[in-house]
């Protein structure tokens, strides 16, 4: 009888506690991260980012510099469980979607911070790359790295000329 209880606690109780812990702490951390992202994105609004390959002719662009930003975000216990369930029936894995979004937006914020430190106010040719690093082999942690990079410029105030009427 005692052995049954021990088995039950080890087999069901501990995973259940981990699930609840993962869910509560994980989603709290995620909400906090999203709030911080919105704040930082607001602060960096002055640095414009474009995914264009060629520099517009009417802009005076100086001091080109390659800027990068990256973030590695790992999944929590609950998300992994939820994704495992989803795996059975297929379809959209919402639990992982927010993971990628957080990593990518954080990467953009960091890239823009590097650009600002350089005194730049525009980033052109922004590219994204996503890497699943250090997978699950050897007890590694399932995590994704998002990388954002582009070329930062200081724009002259010559800018596009507005014709005087």
């Amino acid at each position: 009888m005692v052995e049954l209880w021990i088995d039950l606690i080890l087999g069901v109780g501990i995973p259940l506690v981990l699930l609840v812990l993962g869910f509560v702490v994980g989603s709290w951390a995620e909400r906090r991260h999203f709030r911080r992202l919105i704040e930082n994105e607001e602060k960096l609004r002055g640095i414009m980012g474009f995914a264009i390959r060629r520099a517009p002719r009417d802009l005076d662009l100086a001091a080109p510099k390659l800027v990068t930003g990256s973030a590695v975000i790992s999944v929590d216990y609950f998300k992994r469980f939820a994704a495992g369930l989803r795996h059975l029936i297929g379809g959209r894995v919402g639990a992982y979607e927010s993971l990628f979004e957080r990593a990518r937006r954080e990467a953009v914020v960091r890239m823009k911070e590097e650009a600002r430190a350089h005194g730049a106010d525009m980033i052109l040719n922004i590219k994204f790359e996503t890497v699943r690093i250090f997978g699950r082999q050897r007890g590694g942690i399932l995590s994704v790295e998002a990388l954002a990079y582009g070329t930062a410029y200081r724009t002259g105030h010559a800018g596009p000329q507005i014709p005087q009427s």
């Binding site: 993962g22 702490v25 995620e30 790992s74 929590d76």
Partner: peptide, 10 residues
């Protein structure tokens, strides 16, 4: 367990 950024990996 709790997810979040792996600063050392970054």
């Amino acid at each position: 367990l709790i997810g979040g950024e792996l600063k050392s990996y970054t």
